[in-house]
Nucleic acid binder design. Sequence first.
DNA 1: TAGATCAGCGCGT
DNA 2: CTACGTGCTGATCTA
Length: 380
Amino acid sequence: MDRNTLVSFGQMLTERIAACEQAIFGYAGGEFNINSTKQLGEVLFERLNLPPVKKTKTGYSTNAEVLEKLADKHPMVRQVMEYRVLTKLKSTYADGLLKVIGPDGRIRTTFQNLVTATGRLSSTDPNLQNIPVRTELGSEIRKMFVPRPGWVFVDADYSQIELRVLAHIAEDPLMQEAFRTGRDIHTATAAQVFGVPPEEVTPLQRRHAKAVNFGIVYGISEFSLAEDIGVSRYEAKAYIDSYLDRYAGVRAYMREIVAEAKDRGYVTTLFGRRRYIPELKSSNYNIRQGAERIALNTPIQGTAADLIKLAMVRVDRALEEAGLQAKLILQVHDELIVECPPEEAEQVRAIVTGQMESVAQLSVPLVAEAKVGRSWYEAK
DNA sequence: TAGATCAGCGCGT
DNA sequence: CTACGTGCTGATCTA
């Protein structure tokens, strides 16, 4: 870990947080604990009389979605949004990671192999599976994850592993065809759902198709899809209907896996990992619906977990057998990170992606892509 | 009053 | 009313 840069980053955050605080206290007409959702709710909805958007079971909701809706109604709201971003980075990442840098300057996580319901690993003390990547400021943290002096990272990702697993398990000819011909799956899906040639798919159509693909894996409802992509419920329903008309194998899979789960009481992954789902028999509709989504998602997420675990064993062995100094150091669900001397990097890249792609022969290709870099940020 | 637990929130795949 | 996790802070409960 680049400790010095992390310390500076933390100091920068401290300054920006202080500025946010002053602005917020100015708008509020006094000091309060901004971290307290209770106090913040009182200021926003009772002192400033902003319209409550949503409630939690204990009071007003003040989450990011709510703040977004209120952002144009009072200048304090955007300051609170910025405050949340900055304090999250400071407490969880800047301060949090500084505390766990070892005497040798390295950070080591603990992987839990028997915690998750689906077969994934989890990572604790610190969790290295949730390091920021989506925003520019957050991803600064990744620049501070660096290999030992003179070495590099090789970062390999599975491409669309869950949708490939779905295409395989559901035996869906159209989805399999899309992957076999190496097409962009979201563009291919958009072309199907919207009935246009792939080259005429607009960025918005692709974004919507991506959300549908994403949602299908989790057993989405038209309601939440509509919410997610900002269309009417009817439009969302039309997307899902059209999707399942085209990807008929997926529709059949969704029906069959739930029926099988109700019959047996459990679902399994491709490698036989089993998850019992007693909630399928609940008298509560919402519980039952949730259980059906679990029945749908677990074989997909769990099979992907099985695949990468097997790949980890093979990558580790292959690096050793090649006589390399390279070491597998991290897994993030669909991503493996190896540390090695720069002269090994190209060979490591070939070995890691090769092992990941050949770990199992499914009805669609498994594809892994790797990059080399002098930090986690660079290698991703 | 200190520690445990719950609640809300937000980070990742 | 979308799957799976970890961990932070504040509020509340408990011994």
